[in-house]
């Protein structure tokens, strides 16, 4: 028996919006720790890792570990039927081939339930070891989204370089080239407007902008994004989900042959 009650139901809609462009079908894993997901895009270039901790739910009952295969477009269709202020409860019985989403209006005057068929999904689960990163950039998520969107209008790839000068995002395309340099800035009115660049070693890596732009669909989940770079590793783009957990995107770099 599984029963997860999320008072801020809109959070689940935002999570779906953040990942459904990257991943079509995925297994949601439920355990005593929380509600989680790890899935790769079809080309195995990018990976999304989601955790919504059990403590973040108003009520969290998960009698045994359960993996539920869902088509994310269908799940998004169902969640779209909830009101923005609704409380969402996810329910499933052991061994059932369906999951139920229950939506309650804040005043309890409207209660709906939507049942969705589950699917069997063969998914490869990757072990991602803890790593030391050469550079970690913490910046406003909206600024990162703007940079990715702007650069994608010029080129297909972005070179992210971190040096003593700051962090540089560069691209090149048929019509020209673009460079955006951000310097550390902590003299801001609100902490979420700060740009903090932590550099252990200079690093420069190339990534496909198409994936970066897809990651920025998570912007409504957090004001801050953290980008972790190491020359031998995929980049990690993390959006923290307040009091609940995180959504992390991993993207393999491109290398010159």
């Amino acid at each position: 028996m599984l029963e997860l009650r999320l008072v801020q139901g809109s959070l689940l809609k935002k999570v779906l919006d953040a990942i459904k462009e990257l991943v079509k079908d995925a297994n949601f894993d439920c355990s005593t720790t929380g509600f989680s997901l790890q899935a790769m895009d079809s080309s195995h270039v990018a990976l999304v890792s989601l955790l919504l901790r059990a403590e973040g739910f108003e009520h969290y009952r998960c009698d045994r570990n359960l993996s539920m295969g869902m088509n994310l477009d269908n799940m998004a269709k169902m969640l779209k039927c909830s009101g923005n202020d609704d409380i969402i409860t996810i329910k499933a019985d052991d061994g059932s081939d369906s999951v139920t989403f229950m939506f309650e209006s804040p005043t309890q005057d409207k209660i709906s339930d939507f049942e969705m068929k589950l699917m069997d999904i063969d998914s490869e689960h990757l072990g991602i070891p803890e790593a030391e990163y050469h550079a970690i950039i913490r910046m406003p998520s909206a600024e990162f989204a703007k940079i990715c969107r702007d650069l994608a209008s010029i080129g297909d790839t972005v070179v992210i370089s971190v040096s003593k000068e700051g962090v540089k995002f560069s691209t090149r395309g048929d019509i020209g080239a673009a460079n955006v340099v951000l310097r550390q800035n902590t003299t801001v009115d609100k902490p979420e407007e700060a740009t903090i660049i932590e550099m252990n070693e200079p690093v420069s890596l190339t990534f496909a902008l198409r994936y970066m732009n897809s990651f920025t669909k998570a912007t409504p989940l957090s004001n801050i994004v953290t980008i972790s770079l190491s020359s031998e590793l995929p980049v990690v783009v993390e959006y923290k989900i307040a009091e609940m957990g995180y959504i992390r995107f991993y993207l393999a770099p491109k290398i010159e042959e």
Binding site: S43, H44, V45, L126, G127, P234, A252, K254, E256
Partner: peptide
């Protein structure tokens, strides 16, 4: 020409 690496070149199946 830049070649796109795959995640499985970095991380192993758990």
């Amino acid at each position: 020409k830049a070649v796109q690496l795959s995640l499985t070149e970095f991380y192993r199946s758990a």
